[in-house]
Structures are given as C-alpha cells and as structure tokens.
C-alpha cells in the first residue's frame, strides 16, 4: 500500500478505476443541479419574490391584518399542543419498541407508521366521522355544547394524527442501534429508571430527538389537507396559516397570500438549517467518540468490547 501510493501514475490509475471520466462527472453534476434549481430553488425563490412584488410595505401590510394574526396565533397554539404530545408518545414508543422484545412488535411498529401513509384528507375525514354532527360522539358533544369539528380541538387532533410518527420514527432506529448495554450498566450500578433515561439514554439520542421535534413542528405548522377538512374555514377563528394562504390565494390577493406563505417558507428554511447543524454535530460527536484513546475500533478488537459498542452506534 505504502509503496504503490508513492507512484502518482498508479494513484491516478486506481482512481480512474472507481470514478468516471471528467466529462461524465460534469454532465451528471450539471443535470442534477439543474433539476435542483428547477424543482427546489425556483419554487422557494418564487415565494419571496411574489411576496415582495409590490414592495416591502405591501408585504408587511399583508401580515398585519387581523385575520393573518389570528391565523398565526392558531398555528402556534396547535403546534404547542401537538408537538409535545407526540414527543412524549415518541419517546415512550421508542423505549418500548427499541429496548424490549415482545410479541406483536412488528405489527405495533407498522401501526405507528400508519399515519404517514394515510392521505391527509382521509385522516381529516376519520375525525369528522368520530366527532362530527353525524359522527359517533356528535350527538353527545352537541348536547354538551362542545365543538370539536370546525373548531380548534378538531384542528389539534388532525394535526396530532398527521405528525404522529415523526419523533417515534426518528428515535426507534437510533435507540435500536445503540443497544441496551449502557442503560443496563446504569441500572446495575443503582440508578433509577428515570435517572438512567435522563443521564444515559437522553444524551445519546438528543440530536435525533431534536431532529424529530423540528420535523414534527414543521409539519404541524404547515399541515393543510387534514386541517382543511376539519377546520370549516371560519375566518379569524379556525384558519391556520396554510388555510389563510389558500383563502387569500383564491381571492386573488396574491401578495398577501405569498406574504403569509413566506412565513412558512422561513420556518422551512430554519428547519433545514437546524437539521443540518444537528447532523453536523452528530457526526462530530461520533467522530470524537471513535477517536477516544484505546477505543479506536481496530477491526472490532475483542479486547475492548465496550469501544466497539460505541463506535458501531453510527
């Protein structure tokens, strides 16, 4: 290895065996970048240019009308309720599924995934059939003067449904890869279950958890189909930002519609930035733990079993 790598011609020969000719490389890169430009960059840029088409004043005016404010408020309320509930569920489900073996685990995992594959419109309809005037609890709710459908609780429920798997999905593979060894050690050393989770498990999963939370939040704030079915579109009352965007757009108030949309686009950009930072931190931590003295994974040396556990968590 050391000898052959001194000969530059041999290096080039070895590289050309496992990569493509320059013209192929550049063509592929160009085609891929054009695709990204057309399908990702332009739509994103269009949101902001359309919002600012009539200047910054019109943009701010679009955001300052009371209906826009109430939409922003409702969106925040929905996210503040839905995300923590799914966070608790995600952690509990990941603990049960990743740390233990039990019959029916595969079925449970499939059910946790289910909301991902259900069309948002169908999800909304399901809640109408449970809580709507014609639904299972409709008459009872009406008798007690509780509104769920065409009101805020319905919007919250529909949002919880569509964002249900996000955090669990992120945590289950992560916790499975990390195994139980560290937690078992903590328990054997006398930590309580809660302490074990807080001081052993949580530090290991924190980046994945954060990533799941921000994705869940982005979807919760941006959900359209399911919320559209259960909201009833009452202006200033049951419109979230995406529904507000729709109404304005259909009324040909393009600038105001794109102004509201730009808030969601900024949210999306912030989400992507946090996600990149999380990934970057995660890689750094894994690299750092792989570099620990005596724990370098020298071909899975059986002498240091602990070190292998940590580095295979990647």
């Amino acid at each position: 290895m050391a000898e052959s790598s001194k000969d530059p011609r041999k290096i080039r020969r070895a590289q050309s065996d496992t990569t493509e000719a320059p013209w192929v490389r550049y063509t592929l890169i160009t085609v891929a970048l054009t695709f990204v430009l057309l399908f990702l960059v332009l739509p994103l840029a269009a949101v902001f240019t359309e919002a600012l088409r009539k200047g910054f004043g019109a943009y701010v005016d679009g955001l300052r009308e009371p209906d826009a404010w109430s939409a922003i408020r409702l969106t925040l309320i929905v996210a503040v309720i839905a995300v923590p509930l799914n966070l608790v569920f995600g952690v509990a489900a990941a603990w049960a599924i990743a740390k233990f073996e039990f019959p029916g685990k595969a079925i449970l995992t499939t059910f946790v995934d289910l909301p991902f594959s259900v069309s948002p419109v169908v999800a909304g309809l399901m809640y109408v059939l449970v809580f709507g005037a014609q639904g299972w609890f409709g008459p009872w709710l009406q008798a007690h003067d509780i509104k769920v459908i065409f009101a805020v609780p319905g919007i919250v429920l529909a949002t919880i449904f569509v964002t249900f798997p996000f955090i669990a999905r992120e945590l289950i593979p992560l916790m499975q890869a990390q195994g139980n060894d560290e937690e078992q050690a903590a328990i054997v050393l006398g930590a309580t279950g809660w302490q074990t989770f807080w001081h052993v498990t949580l530090p290991n999963i924190k980046w994945g958890l954060l990533y799941g939370v921000i994705l869940c939040n982005a979807r919760a704030m941006g959900e359209f189909g399911a919320v559209s079915v259960v909201s009833g579109h009452i202006r200033g009352q049951t419109n979230t930002i995406p529904l507000h965007v729709e109404i304005l757009y259909n009324e040909y108030q393009s600038v105001a519609a794109f102004a509201a949309a730009s808030l969601l686009a900024i949210l999306a950009l912030v989400t992507l930035v946090i996600k990149s930072v999380v990934e970057w931190r995660n890689e750094k931590e894994l690299a750092a733990s792989a570099d620990l003295p005596m724990e370098a994974p020298q071909a899975a040396s059986p002498v240091f079993p602990g070190g292998v556990t940590r580095s295979t968590a990647a």
Binding site: L40, P43, L44, E50, M221, G225, I241, P242, A261
Partner: peptide, 15 residues
Amino acid sequence: VDLPFALPTAVAGIS
C-alpha cells in the same frame, strides 16, 4: 433536498 419535507404543501402549491 429535504425542502419538500419542511415546506408546507400549500406553499409549494401556490409557488
């Protein structure tokens, strides 16, 4: 690449 996951569908639609 993850933009379509993060950008609300209604925004993508009008854009």
